[in-house]
Structures are given as structure tokens and as C-alpha cells.
Simulated assay, not measured.
Amino acid sequence: MTTVAQLAFWISALLLLHAFAGYPACMVWIARRRPRPVRKQPVTPTVTVVIAIYDGAAHIRDKLASLRALDYPADRIEIVIACDGCRDTSAELCRWLDDPGVRVLEFDERRGKAACLNDAIAVAEGEILLMTDVRQRLDVHALRELVANFADPEVGAVSGELRFEDPQTGFARGVDTYWRYETLIRHAESRSGSTIGVSGALYAMRRALFLPLPLGTVLDDVLIPMRVAKAGKRVIFEPLAVAWDRLSLHPAEERRRKIRTLAGNFQLMQLAPWLLAPWRNPLWFRFVSHKALRLLAPWLLALFMLAIIVLASRHAFYAFALCALFGGALLVALTRMLRMGERWLPVRAAVAFFYLNLFAAQALVAFARNRRLHLW
């Protein structure tokens, strides 16, 4: 029993350490020792902006104003907006603005983002596709910075950086802290080759590389870049191309969005099982380390905790580990109840880690119970 518990302890501990610390450190080391710079040049290919929206009337005016303010030749941009069974006035507002560069595709039935992207890109004429969501505001230089990367023929897709405005609560600051950590990893992945995902709020790709998405796909911002990498092109992170969003101030506001995204990872592996095959996925190590192990983390933590409980009475090291584990859990509980330590980085990181793993565990249950994730 002791041997089995020790084996469970060390396997779970090493996998968790690799997923959250070892892999990021590995990417940073490779990026510094063997960087692969991108040959950026100021180019202006034609661009089709693609936006799929569902009940986006509250944001569409500001979004179109943000797009028209971009530092890029207006005659090189077309905008295609796909309204996915909207129950509000999204389509009417787009037409009322009477912008000749905007094309509206209106669908009576709600089918999900993937179906809208497929239809919108089918009528796109630009050499480059700019994918963005309706809610986020784009920096004026965002498109120009993204497109400059396509001067390098090795680049197939480019992700912008999502930043958050004015995080206020401890929870929001924790999410912001986690997102900065995630951005660090993506930057290192990009500098050392390719990143495995892009920000759904802002990314661009060569139109020639787009393949129709399976209907119901939730994570187009992972499947599309992974397909680009499979085609032999690089997926780059561009920190100078920025989209701005606001954080959820409370866990309840973030929970539904995060669970849907995490459940989308389970769906992704069901739709594209080649992602888990090292002989078919050129970014297999990165995908497994960055995505798959994160999904396993809650269950690895449970295994880790059970092993510690069994071993705590047998050796002081495991007793200390058990105390540290419960100490961390107590810190998170006190932070939630008393809102203490909002400005202390370790506390914010612990809170973000707790919620990430809680949502990951709930995501597996949600995916098993509801396969129609795209209509959440």
C-alpha cells in the first residue's frame, strides 16, 4: 500500500509540476537559447474582418467604430458580420449604420459560432482573415501589427494579445494574474516556434489555410491554429496587437464562460483525435503539456491528496506536504470569505489556481452531460 501511495504521490506531483512550472520554464529556456525570429515587414494585403455574433446589439456600434479607427487602409478592409439567430436588433443596427464596407449575413436559426464562421469565410475576399469578437475594443495599431508578420512566408496565423481593463476585486485580480502567466507561456511558445492557441478576441490567418470547421466546434481559436501548424506553417503571438476587455468581477460571472471553454477542450479532442497522436501533431508535446495536462490537473490533485493522507503518518516529509496542502486550501477559503490579500501576488495566484482546477473538474461533467456546448 505504501509503495502504491508513493508512486501515486510522485507521478501526480511531477505531472502537476511539469504542467504549471516545468513546461513554461522549458519554453522560456528554448525561446532564449534557440529563438526563431519573425521577418516582419510593413505590408498591406486585403483583409476580411469576420465577426460572429449572438445578441450583440449592445456592442456592435462600438465594435464597428473600433474597426473603422484601425490604422490600416480602409479600402483594403471588408467586414463580414454573421448574426447567429439573434433575437435583438444586431442585424438592423449594422444595416442602419449604412457602411458600404460591411456585409451582414443573417440566420434565423441559432447554429453556433463555427457554422457562422464557415459561412462568413465562404464569402470573404481578403487574403487575410481577421477574427474578432464583438465585445472587445481593438488598439488602433492592432491590425497593422498582426499583418506585418505575414511578410514572413513561414507564418500562417498570428494571435493578438488580450488585456484586461481595471481589475478590481481579488477574484478579478487573480484571473488577471493567471492571464499574464498564460501570456508569458504563449510568448515563449511563439518565440521558440509556434503557440498552440490564439486569442479568440483577436487573431489573423491566411485565408488559403482555412478549412471548414466541424459544426458545433467551440474552440476555433485552438483547432484553427493547430491545423495551421499541421500544414507546416508557424502560429505566432504578437504582443503589439492588443484587444481590450473587462474582467468578470465575481466567480459566478466567470464560471459559465470558463467551464464552456474548458469543456470545449474535451470536445476538441473528440473532434480531432489526431491532436493526441505524436506522429500526426507537430506540436504534440506542447499541446499535451499546455492543454491536456491542465484538464487532468484536478484529478491529479485529488490523487496527490489521497496519497499524502496515506503517507502522512509514515514520514515527516509527507506530513509537511499535507500541512502545506491544507494551508493553501485554508488561504483560499479565507480569501473568499474575508477578501483578504487581494494585493498579494501569491494569494491571487492561489485563488486563480483554485478556480482554474474547480472549473476544469466541472467542465468534464458538463461535457459528459451536454454535448451541445456551442449553444450555451
Rank of each mutant, 00 (worst) to 15 (best):
V102E: 01
F9L: 06
A122N: 07
D176L: 11
L219P: 14
M269F: 12
L311I: 08
Q136M: 11
F171N: 05
A52I: 03
G101Q: 08
G264C: 07
T46D: 08
E253A: 11
P45G: 05
W279E: 15
V332R: 06
S248H: 15
T169L: 10
R294V: 14
F354H: 11
F287G: 06
L283A: 08
F237S: 06
R234Y: 12
R348K: 14
I259D: 08
L358F: 13
L15V: 08
F359P: 00
G170R: 05
F237R: 04
W96I: 00
A368P: 10
T48M: 06
G216P: 02
E161A: 11
P214D: 14
S248L: 00
V4Q: 09
S66Q: 00
V155C: 05
F20K: 07
R256L: 13
A361N: 04
G232N: 07
S248A: 14
L293V: 06
N118W: 05
G156L: 00
R294T: 15
G112W: 07
T169D: 13
F320A: 15
L271A: 09
A157L: 12
D99S: 02
R186M: 12
C116H: 11
P225R: 00
L15F: 11
K258Q: 15
E109A: 08
S90G: 01
A201I: 02
A368Y: 11
Y181N: 13
R186C: 07
L358K: 08
T177E: 15
R137T: 12
A231Y: 04
V28L: 11
V288G: 03
T48F: 03
L356N: 12
V175S: 12
G232V: 04
L311D: 14
F287Y: 13
R68S: 06
L301Y: 07
G328Q: 14
L249T: 09
P167Y: 05
P278I: 04
A292Y: 14
R260A: 08
P225K: 04
G126E: 00
P346G: 10
L247R: 12
Y23E: 09
V50H: 01
M337E: 15
T169A: 10
V38T: 13
L93W: 03
A13D: 09
Y355C: 02
E189K: 06
A229P: 09
A204I: 02
W376C: 14
G328T: 10
K63D: 13
L14M: 11
M27T: 12
D99F: 04
H59Y: 10
F317R: 02
P42I: 01
R260S: 07
R111C: 10
M226W: 01
F354E: 09
V38K: 00
L375R: 14
R286T: 10
L184N: 07
A352Q: 03
P225E: 04
V147E: 03
L364N: 06
R257P: 05
L249G: 14
R34I: 07
L143I: 02
L223A: 11
L17F: 12
A120G: 07
W10A: 03
G232S: 11
L14Y: 09
G193Q: 02
G112T: 01
L296A: 15
D139S: 12
R280G: 10
V242N: 05
V158M: 11
R137A: 11
T3S: 13
M226H: 00
